[in-house]
Design a protein around this nucleic acid. Structure first.
Lengths: 165, 165
DNA sequence: GCTATTTAATTCGATATCATAATATCGCAT
DNA sequence: ATGCGATATTATGATATCGAATTAAATAGC
């Protein structure tokens, strides 16, 4: 039993201590650090959103529609990397709070297109700039060059992982 | 409204298109890529765990106890970066499946210490090596040097973010 | 020794999340 | 025109997750 100095393993776990090949130790180490960094960055960057009373999923939906215009739920599920059944619930809650409106597409009556209502637009006008500012703050632990390098590595890894099976 | 070429924004959202200062664009870009990479890596690396029927939270708990020995729920919450109330539920479910056992600490009767039962130990003996193998696979999109660089950057960012407020 | 505070765990209520199954609608081929 | 396979959404049931309030136990201060 190792000494309990390792704090805050990421959700997918795999504690820092593992006796394996150099390759395994390396992969495991960078994997855990990646998840942990993303976790904390996400938590801390989410402060402004949290203050506004929106959940992560709700914010993702509102933001997608804000930037891209009215979308149906299948498109939204793809954008925010979630499941259709989950979207139903999230949009139910947004609708109940008066932030969005579902409108049946007249051309294809299977589709429910999600539209922002004025209250959501006002909220995001106010929230988004402060949210971005907060992200700048979180990322400022790294120099501009480091941020670029991190971005490039993550892009490469993310794209590969996405295609993985 | 930008063209909808951006797919799969991470949960915390913030679409890739934003008109802001260079600093903002840079921070936002690397932030989104970080979250997306972590998301996909986590999803794909979780395949083996998924096959075993364990949720992410359940796996995290079992693994922590496997590596570190019996822990109480406060310690566990810290390890797996979760809340005490959540741990209660996760451990309830693990207990119902026969994987763990709660034992009152005789010295401090407030504490419930979580012990692995043999079935969990057998499961992890079988699962963990394949899990690690899978992580190696996911991370192999990057060269060893790139993995090290990613790990170093994430470590730096993660530690800073964690302390952020 | 007794009260006040702190700490551990649980309960509660709300939201999120997924997988699977059911329902509605579309588009096409016959 | 009609019926069938594909697609969009919703329903259902289980788990996860958090924050706030609660209970039980330990400890500190007097």
């Amino acid at each position: 039993m190792s000494k309990p100095t390792t704090e805050g393993s990421p959700p997918t776990g795999t504690g820092s201590h593992y006796d394996g090949s150099a390759e395994e130790v390396r992969a495991l180490g960078s994997f855990v650090k990646l998840l942990r960094a993303a976790r904390w960055a996400s938590i801390k960057a989410g402060r402004r959103r949290e203050e506004s009373g929106l959940s992560e999923g709700q914010f993702g939906v509102l933001e997608a529609v804000y930037h891209l215009g009215p979308l149906d739920q299948t498109e939204l599920a793809h954008k925010v990397l979630s499941s259709p059944s989950n979207l139903t619930v999230v949009i139910d809650n947004l609708e109940r709070q008066g932030y969005v409106e579902r409108r049946r597409d007249a051309r294809d009556r299977r589709r429910q297109v999600v539209h922002l209502r004025p209250s959501a637009r006002r909220l995001l006008d106010e929230l988004l700039p402060r949210h971005v500012e907060r992200i700048v703050e979180v990322m400022s632990a790294l120099s501009p060059e480091e941020q670029d390098r991190l971005g490039a590595l993550c892009r490469k890894l993310g794209r590969a992982a996405e295609r993985l099976e």
